[in-house]
Design a protein around this nucleic acid. Structure first.
Length: 267
DNA sequence: AGCCTTTGACCAGCG
DNA sequence: TCGCTGGTCAAAGGC
């Protein structure tokens, strides 16, 4: 396939993912209207359902485009939207993006030290993603005004957790911007050494800390097939998106609407 | 005392 | 092979 088509594919993927992101942000706002009851809640469902479908279709479309260009354009990460879609590190006010696979053949540039199982998160809050990190390095990067910081999971020795992240500031304006590259998923259990009252440990940024315990307990009781893991502060059980990216839109829609309905009942 | 960050040295990939 | 650069290690010092 000519290179021009590859660029078109890339633009199409970016467009579709961007559309999905915008829709999900709208849905997020909808779900945070916790005061809705009765008919209002039903009306919210009517609004949310087509949005859910459209957002998932946009992301599904992006995946289809990527699949059609196997070898030229593929996600290098096995990231999934985990645990009822509630917790993806650093997603508050942030946009998760994927890098092109650097191991592209046929004359394209190769980048060094390819790291598998990594993904990039552009965020304004690089140090508040719900996990505990230990800094192990700092490097001045050529061509950048900012140094790059290297972090590994605090529980690497204790629990063998291989998660790492690299934080690179990209902007220094009123609201500084950071590019955070995560490598490997956490296999540790945070809560074993966590203080339950530590607000920065809470991955649910939009929910006030004072209400968290009650809300999570209620959710734990309400959502069938899903348990809230107090130690990891995440929902376990059904994953909404499988790691192989085989998206079943109908089942995902059911899951999301189900979660939305329980969320709205918790007023 | 234990855990953290800082920082210079070292190592490895790439051109 | 060599130099540049990014990623990691580990000692030192701070909290």
């Amino acid at each position: 396939m000519p290179m021009g088509n590859s660029n078109l594919e890339r633009e199409a993927v970016i467009r579709e993912v961007g559309r999905g992101y915008d829709i999900i942000k709208h849905l997020q706002g909808l779900l945070q209207l916790k005061t809705m009851k009765g008919e209002d809640a039903i009306h919210m469902h009517e609004l949310a359902q087509p949005l859910f479908r459209e957002g998932l279709q946009a992301l599904n479309h992006a995946l289809c485009i990527m699949r059609s260009g196997v070898g030229k354009f593929e996600v290098k990460s096995d990231i999934k939207v985990i645990e009822s879609g509630l917790l993806v590190p650093g997603t508050r006010d942030s946009l998760i993006s994927y890098e092109l696979n650097p191991r592209i053949e046929n004359g394209c540039t190769k980048r060094k030290r390819v790291v598998e199982n990594s993904w990039i998160d552009n965020t304004t809050m690089p140090y508040e993603d719900g996990y505990q990190w230990r800094k192990y390095g700092d490097k001045k990067i050529t061509g950048s005004n900012f140094s790059r910081s290297y972090f590994r999971c605090t529980y690497k020795e204790e629990q063998g957790c291989q998660a790492k992240k690299i934080v690179q500031q990209t902007r220094n304006e009123d609201v500084p911007s950071f590019q955070v590259t995560y490598t490997n998923k956490h296999t540790c259990y945070l809560g074993k050494t966590m203080s339950p009252s530590a607000p920065q440990k809470n991955p649910f940024g939009s929910i006030k800390q004072d209400n968290d315990n009650n809300q999570m307990l209620q959710l734990q009781e309400c959502i069938p097939g899903r348990a809230y893991d107090d130690e990891r502060q995440i929902f376990t059980g059904v994953s909404m998106v499988e790691s192989n990216c085989e998206w079943d839109i109908d089942s995902l829609l059911r899951d999301l609407v189900e979660y939305a309905s329980y969320d709205c009942l918790l007023t």
